[in-house]
């Protein structure tokens, strides 16, 4: 009888220890989950790529004036974008986005100064740690009754607010 009561108590203590371990696991899991920032850069990059696509294509046909306007007015003015982060979180607010647009042999980019800084990081994207997010789009458009390949690359940095 004494052994049975002792065994029951031992089982209760064992049960309690198991319960505490499960709670510690759950609490640390929840804490880790909520301490990580919500990363919306991929969504931002996709929206930016859509905006750019709508900017130079009308019903599947390439707008021939786009490249000239791009060169003279700049991408931001032509497509109605503000590619500068004004939140104050970044010293270099105008280097948080990079857009590269390629049609045929013509290449245009939003900010050449950022190119060397961000471009090389796209190859390391499988690491997905504290580096910018790259969004690639490849498709064909009708230009002068011929199909031309278009390549769009959008890079969103904003590491401080989305990955750290």
């Amino acid at each position: 009888m004494i052994n049975k009561i002792g065994g029951d108590r031992l089982l209760a203590i064992y049960w309690f220890i198991m319960f505490v371990i499960v709670i510690i696991g759950l609490v640390s899991g929840v804490s880790i989950f909520f301490s990580k920032p919500l990363d919306i850069r991929e969504a931002e990059g996709n929206i930016l790529a859509d905006k750019l696509t709508n900017c130079f294509i009308n019903k599947g046909i390439y707008l021939s004036s786009f490249m000239d306007r791009f060169d003279s007015e700049g991408l931001e003015a032509v497509c109605g974008l503000v590619l500068e982060d004004k939140t104050g979180y970044y010293e270099n607010g105008n280097e948080q986005y990079y857009i590269e647009f390629k049609i045929g042999d013509k290449i245009a980019s939003s900010n050449d100064a950022v190119k060397s800084k961000l471009h090389g990081l796209c190859e390391q994207e499988d690491l997905r740690k504290n580096i910018p997010i790259c969004v690639n789009r490849n498709f064909f458009v009708l230009k002068d009754d011929k199909f031309e390949k278009v390549e769009i690359l959008v890079i969103v940095d904003k590491v401080k607010q989305n990955a750290l």
Partner: peptide, 9 residues
């Protein structure tokens, strides 16, 4: 908390 958007509107 502040977050920036790029759409010029």
């Amino acid at each position: 908390y502040s977050y920036g958007y790029f759409n010029k509107v």
